[in-house]
Design a protein around this nucleic acid. Structure first.
Lengths: 210, 210
DNA sequence: GTCAGTTACCCAACATTGGGGTATTCGTTC
DNA sequence: GAACGAATACCCCAATGTTGGGTAACTGAC
C-alpha cells in the first residue's frame, strides 16, 4: 500500500547521489520518495504539499542555505518530520551543530544501500541512527569532567550560582556565613579564571564542571 | 590468546544475573571476565589488580554506593575502563545521570546473549552501545527549543551574558547603548521569569534556548 | 604532622545589576 | 492607516557584586 509508506524527502544538490538515494529508498516496501530537491529553499517551499515523514538532508549545500539552517526551518514549519543529516564529514562541531538544529540522525554519504535503509528503519521506530564514532562523541559530550579543579563545596556553590542564588541566599542555604560564600566564590573565579557569576556558569557548562 | 582478550569486570548484586553474564562474556573469543563483584566498593578495592578494559555496571545496587557513584569513582581511579551501565530502567533522568557519571554505554538487564556481546563489541571499537530509545533521548537532548519565547536579538544577548559579558561590554559589542542592553535583558528576565543573569543562563540551558 | 578544604572575618572603593518607568523608529500584518 | 512586535534609547535609585588586598582557626585524610 503506497498510502502506508513513510514519505521520504531528499535534499541533496549532487544529482547522481540524489538519484541513487531515490532508487534505494523506493526499493523498500516501507518507504517512498515524495520529492527530491537540490536546495533547502525549494524543499521548504513545497513542505505542505510533500508532507515528509523523513527528510534526508545534505549538510553541504551550495547557495544561500546550508543543511543546518534548513533543518531548523523545516523543523519549524513541519515539526513531525524526522531529519537525517547526510554528510561527508564527521567533524565534531558540525555534528553538534547539526544535532542542535533538530536532526535526529546522522549518516555519511559513503553509506551503502543497507546502511541507508537501516537508518531509515531506525529513525522510523523512534531511534537515532548514527555511526559508532558519532554515538561515542555524543555520549562523551555528557560526561562531567573528572578532572575538575573545583572542590566539592565549590561545585556545590557553583550549582547554586547557576540557580541564580545571591551570596546571601547561598550562605543561608548552606548554613555558612555570607563571607564564606564570598571566599568560595572568589576561589572559584580564580580557578576558572573568570570574574563574574555568569561567566563562571558559562565556563562550567563548556568544561562540564556541573 | 587469553592475553589479547579484553578484560571485563562485572558489578552486579544478583548472583544469577552475574553468573549468566560471566558465561556469556566468557563464551566470546574476544572477551574474558576478570572478576565479578556484588558491590562497587569491592570492585573499586581490586581495580589495580583487575585492570578492566570494560566494566558492566549495575545501576541499582544495594548498600552504600549505587552504580552511578561507582562509575564516577572507577573512571577516576581507572580512567581507561569503558563503562556499560546495566539497568532495568530507561528513565530519562537516570540515563542522563548515568551518562554524566562517565558511562559510555547503556543496556537493559533483559539483554540477551547477542545484545550483550554486541554491546561489548560496539564499545570495544570505540562506539557507544545503547537502545534505539535511549539514542533518541540523547539526541533529543541536543535539540534547541524551536519554540523559544525570545527574539533573535534577545537570544544573541543571552549568549553574550553566558560569556560573562556586562551590560557595558554587550552594548559595545552590539553597537547599541548600555540602556538598550538593559532593556533587552529586562525583557529576557520577564519572559524567562527570572531576575538575574546566572539564573537566566541556567534556565536557558535547561530549556535549550541557546 | 602536614596539607587541602572549609569555615570566618576585615576594609573600602568601585562597578554592575535590578526594578520601575517612558518613548521613538521601523517593519509587518491586518 | 492602525496596530503590533521588535529594537532602540533614556531616566532614577537602591541593592548587590567585584576587586584586592589580607588573616586565621578547625577538620579530616594521607
Amino acid at each position: 500500500m503506497s498510502e502506508n509508506k513513510k514519505r521520504v524527502l531528499i535534499v541533496e544538490d549532487d544529482k547522481e547521489i540524489r538519484n541513487s538515494f531515490v532508487v534505494i529508498v523506493n526499493s523498500s516496501s516501507q518507504f517512498n520518495v515524495v520529492n527530491g530537491y537540490s536546495s533547502c529553499e525549494e524543499a521548504i517551499k513545497h513542505l505542505n504539499a510533500d508532507k515528509p515523514d523523513i527528510v534526508l538532508m545534505d549538510i553541504e549545500l551550495p547557495g544561500g542555505m546550508n543543511g543546518i539552517k534548513g533543518a531548523k526551518i523545516i523543523k519549524d514549519k513541519w515539526p513531525t518530520a524526522d531529519i537525517i543529516m547526510v554528510t561527508v564529514y564527521e567533524d565534531s562541531d558540525l555534528v553538534f551543530e547539526a544535532l542542535k538544529s533538530g536532526a535526529s540522525g546522522y549518516i555519511t554519504k559513503s553509506a551503502n544501500y543497507r546502511e541507508l535503509l537501516s537508518a531509515l528503519e531506525e529513525i522510523s521506530k523512534g531511534g537515532a541512527p548514527m555511526s559508532s564514532k558519532i554515538a561515542r562523541m555524543v555520549i562523551d559530550n555528557f560526561h562531567v569532567n573528572p578532572n575538575s579543579p573545583l572542590t566539592k563545596r565549590e561545585t556545590e556553590i557553583l550549582q547554586l550560582i547557576s540557580e541564580g542564588k545571591t551570596y546571601t541566599q547561598i550562605s543561608e542555604q548552606l548554613f555558612i556565613s555570607k563571607e564564606t560564600s564570598k571566599t568560595h566564590i572568589k576561589n572559584i573565579y580564580a580557578k576558572l579564571q573568570v570574574n563574574c557569576k555568569s561567566e563562571a556558569i558559562a565556563k562550567a557548562n563548556s568544561e562540564k564542571l556541573i
